[in-house]
Simulated assay, not measured.
Amino acid sequence: MNGDNVLDVHDDLSARVRYYECDVTDTDDVNTAVDEIIGQWGRIDILVNNAGVARVGFFQERSPADTRREFEVNFFGYQRLIRAVLPHMRAQETGIIHNMCSGTADTGHAGLTGYSATKGAIKAFVRSLRLELRDTDVSCTLMIPPSTNTGMTAELEYPEWMTVEPEEVGRTLAEKIYSTEPVITPDMTTRIGLSLTRRFPFLWRRMTEGTVKNSE
């Protein structure tokens, strides 16, 4: 991750913004970052789990290590952060944990077997955690953005109309940062698109056909 944009904001708002580098695959690194935040601010009110990697390629072309890496970042990375912040949120009796998910958790995606599997796991995990936290004031949500034009999707040959710029997605989701709805989308277009692709899977197959090339 490049933190240059955050560091630029920090220069202007040093009293309100801090930047901590953290490897979400390293439990000690995660705990250290959270401890430093608690030491600086005294509390953590909102966590946004957004770390993610995707290894593009058909299943037979990928190694088990590829999928293992995706789970370490996309799934266990989320869990490490939640384990670190949840005791603080329970103690202060308030908190929101947002977890970035994907429509591929329901539809799948050719060439993204590992990534889609991690998002399916996150979806089931968050739903279960919500049940465990139902008698507390700590909320756990799924945030589902549209297909976003990021480095992670650069290898996918999506047509331009299918992707949204990350700045736009970030702004719209930031407006919902205090939402405790079980599933949060940035706009009605995304919500309708997710509903249609779940109900009519052939639409998603047509939209994503040819976005990943099989080397065979």
Rank of each mutant, 00 (worst) to 15 (best):
I82Q: 05
E36V: 00
E21M: 05
L81V: 00
G114V: 05
G95W: 01
L13M: 04
D45A: 05
M100I: 10
A91D: 15
D106V: 01
T67Q: 11
G103T: 05
P87T: 07
N49F: 12
D26N: 14
A54D: 14
R127E: 15
D11S: 14
D106C: 03
Y20Q: 11
A117L: 06
S116T: 03
H88V: 01
H109E: 12
L47I: 10
G52R: 03
V53T: 13
G95P: 06
W41A: 15
R55I: 06
D23S: 05
I37M: 13
Q79I: 12
T32Y: 04
I96G: 10
T104D: 06
A121I: 05
V48F: 12
G52L: 06
Q79N: 11
V34N: 06
V30R: 02
D12H: 12
D106H: 14
I44F: 08
I122W: 10
V30Y: 07
P64D: 09
G103N: 13
F71P: 08
F75K: 10
I46Q: 11
M89K: 02
L86M: 09
M100D: 02
E21Q: 14
G77W: 13
I46K: 09
S63N: 07
Q60K: 12
R55P: 00
A51M: 13
D12I: 07
S14M: 08
Y115N: 01
L47M: 12
A51H: 11
F76K: 09
G120V: 04
Q79H: 13
G103W: 00
H109D: 05
R83E: 15
D11Q: 14
G52C: 06
M100Q: 08
A54H: 08
D66V: 04
Q60F: 10
F76L: 14
H88D: 06
P64R: 06
G77P: 00
F76G: 12
T67H: 13
A91Y: 03
W41S: 09
D66Q: 07
A91K: 13
N99I: 07
E61M: 01
I122G: 02
F58C: 01
D45E: 05
V56M: 02
V73G: 10
P64T: 03
D26Y: 02
E72Y: 06
R127F: 10
T104V: 15
D29E: 06
I38C: 07
S116A: 15
A124F: 04
F75P: 01
E72H: 09
A91T: 13
V30H: 08
E70L: 06
R16A: 13
R16D: 14
T113P: 00
G39Q: 12
E21G: 01
D45H: 08
K119R: 08
W41F: 14
R68L: 10
I82T: 13
R90H: 13
A54Y: 08
S116R: 01
S116W: 08
F59K: 00
H10L: 08
F125I: 01
V85C: 09
T67P: 00
